[in-house]
Nucleic acid binder design. Structure first.
Length: 509
RNA sequence: AGAAGCGUAGCUCAAUAGGCAGAGCAUCCGGCUUUUAACCGGAAGGUUGUGGGAUCGUUGCCCACCGCUUCUACCA
């Protein structure tokens, strides 16, 4: 990185300064006079977790008889001075470890410079392990070195940082101060890693497809628009990778997956961020039934192996979801009848009756809707939020599934499912429509909706139809929203709690 | 985009039907060699989000703006 020394004293605006920062800045000024103020020659040899884990069961006497060296580095998050001896807490990626510092060991000068350190400083500590009289594993320091001076005070030690705006804007402080936040993001990383390994083990190939697309396809959503200067053309940030992944199956890669960002130019909420992470995978010669089986195994394994339990607790702590028993599978019509005892499944097949049922349930039926759309709206209004335990809903109407294969027995519905837990959609999968002529007709239908004013309708993708004309083998594909999956597993109430840097309006300067 | 709520010391929070803005932690000074939200004594710390207005007088009331939170709409 470039040399920042010259700008060091001007990096903060005057009104941003206060006495606490000025005091620390003065300490840094003194440090600069003594040599390199930001040394880079300390290499830790142990982590906090490693040491606690390895020595957890050893008693006080063991350390009195055996010299166990420790060399750790991290942020000093607590400092307790008691005259000629002190305790400090050093936090690294893996956890925290207590350090004991004595004037008798460090000498007058060494102890005085330790006392100059502030909570928040990055330090390197060398010493030997011992156990305190209450049995806490502690490093008795033979040296404490300041590695990075922290100029800004950390939040209060007990309450941490609770102001949501600051937590999201300054996530680095949130991560330092709030252990449960660190834990959530470690779990997110572990879940993603598990998913990646799960698919690689099943001979799926991880690929990357365009983020910037000429035709935003694969979903119905408003895209972000950007501009390519050299080509002087608008491009769309992708709303889904689907059509590119299926082109790869046409190309002969029978099993592909991608874990990457999608962008949708829509509202923000506790369940929506403009950019969000999606897993999509495609498997040739498989059907949507096999993908339901696969989804069930994947989620159960994540629960067992990453979360350590097949019982997952909801964000409000009041509901638990059981991943151990087989997931329920219902068709959309069956689910409507099940959750609305006054509705008979056979009536849903009669368009006129369906319409009046939907209206009786408060659905404002639009004149442009066909029975499929009406059924889906009825489902979303009366069933979706009530699907608590893991549930697959199948037989989505073809009308609302422009990329899914029609069912052989009933061409009005598709071989498609969505997966719900805690009343929220987590996944969407189907046997892929690989009939190029049917696909061309469905694109045409979308174009007509688009022309009629629906700015979320799909564009006609001629190259995609051309690819289908080359031949897409029978294939099933699925998308799983990673953010919502992590929310569900970690009991997060807001999507912002599982995205490291959620979208915020810019701070005023 | 619409509605409701919130914004006070570095952090977590008080306060006044409009009348000198407080506490804990953190900081600074002093004491303390096994503490762990360490403890004890003292000190310092504020343009009450920003800008207008009403008032003898505002953190408080009115208006506008900025930001955040939740809900609704669009959606995953």
């Amino acid at each position: 990185m470039s040399e920042q020394e010259n700008s060091a004293t001007t990096s903060s605006t005057p009104e941003d300064e206060n006495k606490l920062i000025a005091q620390r800045r003065e300490k840094l000024t003194q440090l600069r006079k003594l040599g390199p103020a930001f040394p880079n020659d300390f290499t830790p040899e142990h982590s906090a977790f490693e040491l606690s884990d390895e020595h957890a069961l050893r008693d006080k006497e063991f350390f009195e008889n055996t010299a166990v060296p420790a060399k750790i580095a991290g942020r000093m998050v607590a400092k307790r001075i008691m005259g000629k001896a002190s305790f400090a807490q050093i936090q690294d990626t893996t956890g925290a470890l207590q350090v004991f510092v004595q004037m008798a060991t460090l000498g007058d000068e060494g102890y005085a410079s330790f006392k100059q350190l502030d909570v928040g400083d990055i330090v390197g500590v060398e010493g030997k392990l011992f156990k305190t009289k209450v049995g806490e594993l502690t490093v008795k320091a033979s040296s404490v070195r300041l590695l990075t001076k922290s100029l800004r005070p950390l939040p209060e030690k007990f309450h941490g940082m609770t102001d949501t705006e600051q937590r999201y804007r300054q996530r680095y402080i949130d991560l330092i101060a709030n252990a449960e936040v660190r834990e959530t993001f470690k779990l997110r990383a572990a879940i993603v890693q598990y998913i990646r390994e799960f698919f690689i083990k099943k001979d799926f190939m991880e690929v990357e497809t365009p983020m910037m697309q000429v035709i935003p396809g694969g979903a119905t959503a408003k895209p972000f628009v950007t501009h390519h200067n050299a080509l002087d053309m608008d491009l769309y940030l992708r709303i889904a990778p689907e059509l590119y992944l299926k082109r790869l199956v046409v190309g002969g890669f029978d099993r592909v997956f991608e874990i990457n960002r999608n962008f949708r130019n829509e509202g923000l909420s506790t369940r929506h961020n403009p950019e969000f992470t999606m897993l999509e995978f495609y498997q040739a010669y498989a059907t949507y039934n096999e993908l339901m089986d696969l989804t069930e195994v994947l989620l159960r394994e994540i629960a067992e192996n990453v979360m350590g339990s097949t019982t997952i607790t909801s964000a409000d702590g009041e509901t638990t979801y059981d991943f151990s028993k087989p997931f329920e599978r219902l068709t959309m019509s069956e689910s409507i009848a099940k959750y609305n005892p006054d509705i008979y499944a056979e009536d849903l097949a009669k368009p006129e009756v369906l319409r009046s049922i939907a209206e009786s349930k408060g659905v404002k039926v639009d004149s442009s809707w066909g029975p499929g759309k009406t059924l889906t709206e009825l489902f979303e209004a009366t069933v979706e939020h009530r699907l608590q335990d893991p549930t697959f809903i199948t037989a989505y109407p073809a009308e609302v599934s422009p990329l899914a294969r029609r069912n052989d027995e009933n061409p009005q519905v598709t071989d498609r499912f969505e997966f719900f837990v805690g009343g929220r959609e987590i996944a969407n999968g189907f046997s892929e429509l690989n009939d190029p002529e049917d696909q061309a007709e469905r694109f045409q239908a979308q174009v007509e909706i688009l022309a009629a004013g629906d700015d979320e309708a799909m564009h006609y993708d001629h190259d995609y139809v051309r690819a289908l004309e080359i031949g897409l083998p029978p294939t099933a594909g699925e998308g799983i929203g990673i953010d919502r999956l992590v929310m569900m597993f970690t009991g997060a109430a807001s999507i912002r709690d599982v995205i490291l840097f959620p979208h915020m309006r810019p701070e005023r300067q």
